[in-house]
């Protein structure tokens, strides 16, 4: 039989702590395996050649979505399960992201924890988890840690994970008023939140050419108390756009505001030309996506049901 990956020894973990102690014993040539949708292609190309794989996939109780208070997602929760969860529907931006990652087959195997640990600059989760202020819970030889997502993602393929440390959970705080259903459209009391994530892709199985994550909290129908805007895919890590956030917070959102957001995004984006498009194409795309994402986030904050998804072009 023709074999693509270099040979490795297989180790099945019974629990997270078992996985950590196994990988401590096996040393530097060992890797954790979650869903494998990033690691297996790399191993087939022998860009990654671990001597040992510690399989997290058979550990019970690692895939869950708990919606009490904030959202807590087990590290091995698959993208498809996140997309389908009624608890996640309260944070539309998460659903936008989960439902648009690659294609159904990849979403059935790939996990949020695996994707985050990979920290691929073209991954979808980083901008979304940054925009929602997520916390990454980990377990390592020195015990448990909670790491702010902004301190977790350090660089392309670089995370704050120590050797032999793994992700156990991703916690996402519920934005103010999200999903309480108390405020209907036309209510005198505002304070609703809304978010959206939109990526532009040539087709489903490929990585995006550009993506934008927006999370807003309104103080009245057209004024933002808080705004977070992140670009995905356009740099080594997700890029925050402070100028766009400031514009959104600075007064009533009108057409001019949207144009200023578009400009701010285009100013800060530093895309490179590659097979997914020229730098200029990606910069223009990011600006256009930002307007679409702000519009969707705003309407969602006003309790309008808005369906968005990855765009194919």
């Amino acid at each position: 039989m023709r074999m693509y990956p270099a040979a490795f020894a297989y180790h099945r973990a019974q629990s997270y702590s078992d996985a950590v102690s196994q990988i401590c014993q096996l040393g530097e040539d060992a890797k954790f395996l979650a869903g494998g949708q990033s690691l297996i292609p790399l191993m087939k190309l022998r860009l990654s050649t671990p001597r040992h794989l510690v399989d997290l996939g058979f550990i019970p109780g690692t895939s869950y979505i708990h919606g009490n208070g904030g959202l807590r997602l087990g590290a091995l929760t698959r993208h498809a399960a996140i997309a389908a969860s009624p608890d996640v529907a309260r944070l539309s931006i998460l659903r936008d992201c989960a439902a648009g990652i690659a294609d159904p087959q990849v979403r059935h195997m790939g996990t949020i924890g695996g994707s985050l640990a990979e920290a691929d600059p073209t991954g979808d989760w980083a901008p979304v988890l940054l925009a929602t202020g997520a916390t990454v819970k980990t377990l390592g030889p020195n015990g448990e840690r909670s790491i702010d997502i902004a301190e977790f993602i350090l660089d392309a393929y670089q995370t704050g994970l120590q050797p032999a440390e793994l992700i156990t959970e991703i916690a996402i705080p519920l934005p103010p008023q999200a999903g309480t259903g108390h405020q209907s459209r036309g209510s005198a009391r505002w304070g609703g939140s809304g978010g959206a994530y939109i990526a532009l892709k040539r087709c489903a199985p490929v990585y995006a050419s550009a993506s934008v994550a927006v999370q807003l909290t309104l103080s009245d129908e057209a004024t933002c108390a808080d705004a977070r805007v992140y670009l995905g895919v356009l740099g080594l890590t997700a890029t925050r756009v402070p100028a766009a956030e400031e514009v959104l917070r600075s007064g009533t959102i009108i057409d001019k505001t949207m144009e200023q957001v578009r400009r701010a995004v285009m100013d800060i984006a530093e895309p490179v030309s590659d097979m997914r498009g020229s730098a200029d194409y990606k910069r223009q795309a990011a600006g256009a996506l930002a307007k679409l994402a702000v519009d969707a986030a705003l309407r969602r904050a006003r309790r309008e049901p808005v369906e968005v998804s990855h765009l194919y072009a």
Binding site: G36, P41, G57, A80, Q105, H108, M109
Partner: peptide
């Protein structure tokens, strides 16, 4: 695999155990 479509070129056989 267990009722969900997967790309079998990107799954190790042991994942189907």
């Amino acid at each position: 695999l267990n009722g969900q479509t997967v790309k079998s070129c990107t799954v190790f056989a042991f994942q189907a155990d």
